[in-house]
Computed example of a mutant assay.
Amino acid sequence: MKKYCLTVDLINDAKLIAEYEAHHKTIWPEIEKSIRDAGIESMEIYRVENRLFMIMEVSETFSFEKKQAADLANPRVQEWETLMWNYQQALPFANPGEKWVLMKKIFQL
């Protein structure tokens, strides 16, 4: 099993952050299905202030490219992503259109 960590910022507004968290208390069933179908076996999101940190544990068949292609072909996932973009903001160093940025592991004990 592989593990990936990603990060993105939320718009720094307490009301919007509360709404974002509320959306994640019960995600849409189609979103959970798309995550699981991609080979993501576990996903956790943590927040400090307006910075989010995601940990994903994935199967050997998972690839970011396949997940992106499946997401682009899924109208419900696109609806969710559009909704989430109302709360998220790209990191200053992100590529154009990039939300979640893959983090580099620098230490393990």
Rank of each mutant, 00 (worst) to 15 (best):
M1Y: 08
M1L: 10
K2W: 12
K2Y: 15
K3A: 14
Y4S: 06
C5F: 15
L6W: 09
L6E: 07
T7V: 03
V8H: 03
D9W: 05
L10I: 02
D13N: 11
D13E: 09
D13C: 06
A14M: 15
K15L: 09
L16Y: 02
L16S: 04
I17S: 01
I17H: 01
A18S: 14
A18G: 08
E19L: 08
Y20N: 01
Y20A: 01
Y20K: 02
Y20I: 01
A22N: 14
A22E: 11
A22Q: 10
H24E: 07
T26I: 12
T26S: 12
I27D: 01
I27R: 10
I27T: 06
W28K: 03
W28H: 10
P29A: 08
P29Y: 04
P29S: 06
E30P: 00
I31L: 08
I31A: 01
I31S: 00
I31G: 00
E32R: 10
K33M: 06
K33G: 02
I35E: 06
I35Y: 04
R36D: 07
D37K: 08
A38F: 01
G39M: 03
G39D: 04
I40R: 01
E41K: 14
S42D: 15
M43E: 13
I45M: 14
I45Y: 03
Y46R: 12
Y46D: 11
Y46G: 06
R47W: 05
R47L: 05
V48W: 11
E49H: 12
N50K: 03
N50D: 11
N50L: 07
L52F: 00
F53P: 00
M54C: 14
M54S: 07
M54W: 11
M54V: 07
I55E: 13
M56G: 02
M56P: 00
E57P: 02
E57G: 05
E57T: 09
E57Q: 15
V58D: 00
S59E: 10
S59D: 12
S59V: 04
E60F: 09
T61G: 10
F64W: 12
F64G: 15
E65Y: 04
K66A: 15
K66T: 06
A69R: 10
A70V: 06
A70E: 06
A70K: 06
A70G: 12
D71Q: 07
L72H: 06
L72V: 11
A73P: 02
A73G: 07
A73K: 10
A73F: 04
N74I: 03
N74R: 03
P75I: 05
R76I: 13
R76G: 02
V77Y: 04
V77A: 08
V77R: 05
V77Q: 03
W80V: 05
L83R: 01
L83I: 03
L83P: 00
M84A: 15
M84L: 09
W85S: 13
N86K: 13
N86S: 15
Y87P: 00
Q88K: 12
Q89Y: 06
Q89L: 09
A90C: 08
L91Q: 07
L91Y: 04
L91P: 02
F93P: 04
A94M: 08
N95G: 14
N95K: 14
P96E: 15
P96T: 09
G97C: 06
G97Q: 10
G97M: 08
E98M: 09
E98F: 07
W100D: 01
V101G: 02
V101A: 12
V101Y: 04
V101L: 09
M103P: 03
M103V: 11
K105P: 12
F107Q: 11
Q108E: 14
Q108T: 13
L109S: 11
